[in-house]
Protein backbone atom coordinates (compact mmCIF):
# COMPACT_ATOMS: atom_id res chain seq x y z
CA UNK A 1 0.00 0.00 0.00
CA UNK A 2 1.18 3.50 -0.80
CA UNK A 3 1.83 6.14 1.80
CA UNK A 4 0.18 8.93 -0.11
CA UNK A 5 -2.52 7.47 -2.27
CA UNK A 6 -4.62 9.73 -4.49
CA UNK A 7 -7.09 8.04 -6.76
CA UNK A 8 -9.24 9.86 -9.30
CA UNK A 9 -9.29 12.94 -7.16
CA UNK A 10 -11.37 15.84 -8.39
CA UNK A 11 -11.43 19.34 -7.00
CA UNK A 12 -14.01 21.92 -7.96
CA UNK A 13 -13.77 25.43 -6.58
CA UNK A 14 -17.20 26.96 -6.31
CA UNK A 15 -17.20 30.72 -6.47
CA UNK A 16 -20.68 32.01 -5.87
CA UNK A 17 -23.67 30.23 -7.31
CA UNK A 18 -22.74 30.14 -10.97
CA UNK A 19 -19.02 29.98 -11.32
CA UNK A 20 -17.15 26.72 -10.88
CA UNK A 21 -13.52 25.99 -11.57
CA UNK A 22 -12.47 22.41 -12.05
CA UNK A 23 -8.94 22.66 -10.69
CA UNK A 24 -8.00 19.00 -10.96
CA UNK A 25 -9.81 15.94 -12.22
CA UNK A 26 -8.96 12.26 -12.49
CA UNK A 27 -5.84 12.93 -10.50
CA UNK A 28 -4.01 9.78 -9.54
CA UNK A 29 -0.68 9.77 -7.74
CA UNK A 30 1.02 7.28 -5.49
CA UNK A 31 3.96 8.04 -3.26
CA UNK A 32 5.81 5.55 -1.10
CA UNK A 33 6.91 6.33 2.43
CA UNK A 34 10.07 8.47 2.72
CA UNK A 35 10.07 9.12 -0.99
CA UNK A 36 10.94 12.53 -2.42
CA UNK A 37 8.50 13.32 -5.20
CA UNK A 38 8.37 16.54 -7.19
CA UNK A 39 5.36 17.81 -9.09
CA UNK A 40 6.03 19.90 -12.17
CA UNK A 41 3.50 21.53 -14.46
CA UNK A 42 2.33 24.76 -15.97
CA UNK A 43 0.99 27.57 -13.91
CA UNK A 44 -2.61 26.98 -12.93
CA UNK A 45 -2.63 23.22 -13.52
CA UNK A 46 -3.52 22.50 -9.90
CA UNK A 47 -0.25 21.75 -8.14
CA UNK A 48 -0.97 23.94 -5.14
CA UNK A 49 -4.52 22.66 -5.01
CA UNK A 50 -3.28 19.11 -4.62
CA UNK A 51 -0.82 20.07 -1.91
CA UNK A 52 -3.50 21.93 -0.01
CA UNK A 53 -5.71 18.85 -0.14
CA UNK A 54 -2.94 16.63 1.19
CA UNK A 55 -2.42 19.22 3.94
CA UNK A 56 -6.12 19.00 4.72
CA UNK A 57 -6.60 22.70 4.06
CA UNK A 58 -8.88 22.10 1.06
CA UNK A 59 -11.45 19.34 0.79
CA UNK A 60 -11.49 16.98 -2.14
CA UNK A 61 -14.69 17.10 -4.19
CA UNK A 62 -14.57 13.54 -5.51
CA UNK A 63 -12.27 10.55 -5.44
CA UNK A 64 -10.10 9.11 -2.72
CA UNK A 65 -7.12 10.54 -0.90
CA UNK A 66 -5.48 8.60 1.90
CA UNK A 67 -2.30 9.13 3.86
CA UNK A 68 -0.93 6.03 5.53
CA UNK A 69 -4.27 4.35 4.84
CA UNK A 70 -6.30 7.10 6.54
CA UNK A 71 -8.55 9.43 4.56
CA UNK A 72 -7.47 13.04 4.93
CA UNK A 73 -9.76 14.82 7.30
CA UNK A 74 -8.60 18.34 8.02
CA UNK A 75 -5.14 19.63 8.84
CA UNK A 76 -2.73 17.62 10.93
CA UNK A 77 0.69 18.63 12.22
CA UNK A 78 1.97 15.34 10.82
CA UNK A 79 1.46 16.91 7.37
CA UNK A 80 3.22 20.26 7.33
CA UNK A 81 3.15 22.67 4.43
CA UNK A 82 5.73 25.28 3.50
CA UNK A 83 4.79 28.06 1.10
CA UNK A 84 6.79 30.21 -1.26
CA UNK A 85 5.95 33.31 0.77
CA UNK A 86 7.52 31.89 3.98
CA UNK A 87 4.56 33.14 6.06
CA UNK A 88 6.49 33.45 9.27
CA UNK A 89 4.86 35.03 12.28
CA UNK A 90 6.36 38.53 12.22
CA UNK A 91 5.83 39.04 15.95
CA UNK A 92 7.89 35.99 16.86
CA UNK A 93 11.64 35.53 16.75
CA UNK A 94 13.32 32.76 14.80
CA UNK A 95 13.13 30.58 17.89
CA UNK A 96 9.55 31.59 18.60
CA UNK A 97 8.49 30.73 15.06
CA UNK A 98 10.19 27.35 15.17
CA UNK A 99 8.69 26.55 18.58
CA UNK A 100 5.17 27.39 17.45
CA UNK A 101 4.07 23.78 16.97
CA UNK A 102 5.56 22.78 20.32
CA UNK A 103 3.90 25.70 22.06
CA UNK A 104 0.53 24.53 20.72
CA UNK A 105 1.21 21.12 22.22
CA UNK A 106 2.00 22.76 25.57
CA UNK A 107 5.49 21.30 25.69
CA UNK A 108 7.34 22.81 28.67
CA UNK A 109 9.59 25.74 27.90
CA UNK A 110 12.85 24.01 28.74
CA UNK A 111 12.17 21.06 26.49
CA UNK A 112 10.84 23.35 23.78
CA UNK A 113 14.06 25.27 23.64
CA UNK A 114 16.13 22.06 23.52
CA UNK A 115 14.12 20.82 20.57
CA UNK A 116 14.15 24.13 18.75
CA UNK A 117 17.92 24.47 19.20
CA UNK A 118 18.30 21.15 17.46
CA UNK A 119 16.26 22.35 14.46
CA UNK A 120 17.95 25.72 14.41
CA UNK A 121 21.20 23.84 14.04
CA UNK A 122 19.71 21.52 11.40
CA UNK A 123 18.78 24.43 9.15
CA UNK A 124 21.99 26.31 9.89
CA UNK A 125 20.58 29.29 11.77
CA UNK A 126 22.62 29.04 14.95
CA UNK A 127 23.36 32.56 16.12
CA UNK A 128 20.14 33.98 14.67
CA UNK A 129 17.73 32.56 17.26
CA UNK A 130 16.61 35.93 18.53
CA UNK A 131 16.21 37.74 15.23
CA UNK A 132 12.79 38.77 14.00
CA UNK A 133 11.71 37.75 10.49
CA UNK A 134 12.19 41.26 9.10
CA UNK A 135 15.83 41.02 10.09
CA UNK A 136 16.41 37.93 7.92
CA UNK A 137 17.17 37.39 4.25
CA UNK A 138 14.72 35.47 2.06
CA UNK A 139 16.81 32.33 2.24
CA UNK A 140 16.99 32.51 6.02
CA UNK A 141 13.25 33.04 6.27
CA UNK A 142 12.64 29.93 4.24
CA UNK A 143 14.99 27.97 6.50
CA UNK A 144 12.94 29.10 9.46
CA UNK A 145 9.74 28.04 7.69
CA UNK A 146 11.23 24.61 6.98
CA UNK A 147 12.42 24.18 10.57
CA UNK A 148 9.03 25.32 11.84
CA UNK A 149 7.38 22.62 9.72
CA UNK A 150 9.86 19.93 10.80
CA UNK A 151 9.54 20.54 14.52
CA UNK A 152 6.31 18.57 14.71
CA UNK A 153 8.18 15.59 13.27
CA UNK A 154 5.80 15.37 10.32
CA UNK A 155 5.49 12.22 8.29
CA UNK A 156 4.89 14.28 5.18
CA UNK A 157 6.33 17.64 4.34
CA UNK A 158 4.70 19.58 1.53
CA UNK A 159 6.73 22.28 -0.16
CA UNK A 160 4.96 24.61 -2.58
CA UNK A 161 7.61 26.33 -4.69
CA UNK A 162 9.64 26.97 -1.55
CA UNK A 163 12.58 28.46 -3.40
CA UNK A 164 10.52 30.31 -6.00
CA UNK A 165 11.35 33.79 -4.81
CA UNK A 166 15.01 33.27 -4.00
CA UNK A 167 17.98 34.24 -6.11
CA UNK A 168 19.78 31.49 -8.03
CA UNK A 169 22.71 31.13 -5.64
CA UNK A 170 20.65 30.97 -2.47
CA UNK A 171 18.37 28.58 -4.22
CA UNK A 172 21.18 26.19 -5.11
CA UNK A 173 22.46 26.29 -1.56
CA UNK A 174 19.06 25.50 -0.12
CA UNK A 175 18.44 22.65 -2.55
CA UNK A 176 21.52 20.87 -1.30
CA UNK A 177 20.56 21.61 2.29
CA UNK A 178 17.07 20.33 1.75
CA UNK A 179 18.50 17.00 0.62
CA UNK A 180 20.63 16.83 3.76
CA UNK A 181 17.69 17.79 5.97
CA UNK A 182 15.47 15.25 4.28
CA UNK A 183 18.00 12.48 4.91
CA UNK A 184 18.17 13.47 8.58
CA UNK A 185 14.45 14.01 9.12
CA UNK A 186 13.42 10.86 7.25
CA UNK A 187 10.02 11.98 6.00
CA UNK A 188 8.04 11.84 2.80
CA UNK A 189 8.36 14.95 0.65
CA UNK A 190 6.02 16.38 -1.95
CA UNK A 191 7.79 19.22 -3.69
CA UNK A 192 6.21 21.59 -6.19
CA UNK A 193 8.51 23.50 -8.50
CA UNK A 194 8.67 25.17 -11.88
CA UNK A 195 12.30 24.23 -12.29
CA UNK A 196 12.83 20.92 -14.02
CA UNK A 197 16.51 20.68 -13.09
CA UNK A 198 15.65 21.36 -9.44
CA UNK A 199 13.08 18.57 -9.56
CA UNK A 200 15.55 16.10 -11.07
CA UNK A 201 18.33 17.01 -8.67
CA UNK A 202 16.16 16.53 -5.60
CA UNK A 203 13.70 13.78 -6.38
CA UNK A 204 13.26 10.06 -6.47
CA UNK A 205 10.40 10.62 -8.84
CA UNK A 206 9.09 13.55 -10.84
CA UNK A 207 5.38 13.78 -11.62
CA UNK A 208 4.45 15.85 -14.66
CA UNK A 209 1.02 17.47 -14.63
CA UNK A 210 -1.08 18.61 -17.53
CA UNK A 211 -3.64 21.36 -17.55
CA UNK A 212 -7.41 21.38 -18.01
CA UNK A 213 -8.28 19.19 -16.41
CA UNK A 214 -5.26 19.13 -14.13
CA UNK A 215 -3.98 15.60 -13.75
CA UNK A 216 -0.76 13.62 -13.60
CA UNK A 217 0.42 12.96 -17.10
CA UNK A 218 3.49 10.94 -16.36
CA UNK A 219 5.66 9.92 -13.46
CA UNK A 220 9.36 9.49 -14.09
CA UNK A 221 11.73 7.71 -11.75
CA UNK A 222 15.04 9.53 -11.42
CA UNK A 223 17.69 6.87 -11.30
CA UNK A 224 20.61 8.95 -10.17
CA UNK A 225 22.72 7.65 -7.29
CA UNK A 226 22.48 9.29 -3.89
CA UNK A 227 23.89 11.13 -2.14
CA UNK A 228 23.93 13.56 -5.04
CA UNK A 229 26.32 16.42 -5.37
CA UNK A 230 25.97 19.34 -7.74
CA UNK A 231 28.31 17.52 -10.14
CA UNK A 232 25.29 15.50 -11.16
CA UNK A 233 24.03 18.51 -13.13
CA UNK A 234 26.62 17.98 -15.82
CA UNK A 235 26.26 14.21 -16.10
CA UNK A 236 24.82 12.91 -19.39
CA UNK A 237 22.02 11.07 -17.52
CA UNK A 238 20.91 14.29 -15.91
CA UNK A 239 20.91 16.06 -19.28
CA UNK A 240 18.85 13.27 -20.74
CA UNK A 241 16.24 13.48 -17.97
CA UNK A 242 16.12 17.20 -18.39
CA UNK A 243 15.58 16.98 -22.15
CA UNK A 244 12.87 14.38 -21.80
CA UNK A 245 10.98 16.17 -19.01
CA UNK A 246 11.10 19.50 -20.81
CA UNK A 247 9.60 17.85 -23.85
CA UNK A 248 6.76 16.49 -21.73
CA UNK A 249 6.03 19.86 -20.16
CA UNK A 250 6.20 21.83 -23.40
CA UNK A 251 3.98 19.33 -25.24
CA UNK A 252 0.84 20.94 -23.88
CA UNK A 253 1.78 24.52 -24.54
Amino acid sequence: MYFIDAENVKKVYAEGRQKHTVAIEDFTLQVAEKEFVSIVGQSGCGKSTFLLMVAGLEQITEGRLTIDGQPVNGPDPLRSIVFQEYLLFPWKTVRGNIEFGLELNKIPKKERSNISSEYIRLVGLTGFENRYPHELSGGMKQRVAIARALVNKPKVILLDEPFGSLDALTREGLQTELLRIWLEAKCTVLFVTHSISEAIYLSDKVAIMRKRPGKIKEMITIDLPRPRTRDVFISPEFREYERYLKELVWEDL
Binding site: S80, L87, N105, A145
Partner: peptide
Protein backbone atom coordinates in the same frame (compact mmCIF):
# COMPACT_ATOMS: atom_id res chain seq x y z
CA UNK B 1 -3.48 36.87 5.46
CA UNK B 2 -5.44 33.75 4.58
CA UNK B 3 -2.25 31.91 3.81
CA UNK B 4 -0.78 32.77 7.20
CA UNK B 5 -3.85 31.16 8.75
CA UNK B 6 -3.36 28.12 6.53
CA UNK B 7 0.27 27.88 7.60
CA UNK B 8 -0.76 28.07 11.25
CA UNK B 9 -3.46 25.44 10.80
CA UNK B 10 -1.04 23.09 9.11
CA UNK B 11 1.20 23.47 12.17
CA UNK B 12 -1.67 22.34 14.37
CA UNK B 13 -3.42 25.57 15.40
CA UNK B 14 -7.18 25.38 15.67
Amino acid sequence: DKKLIQAAKSLGAE
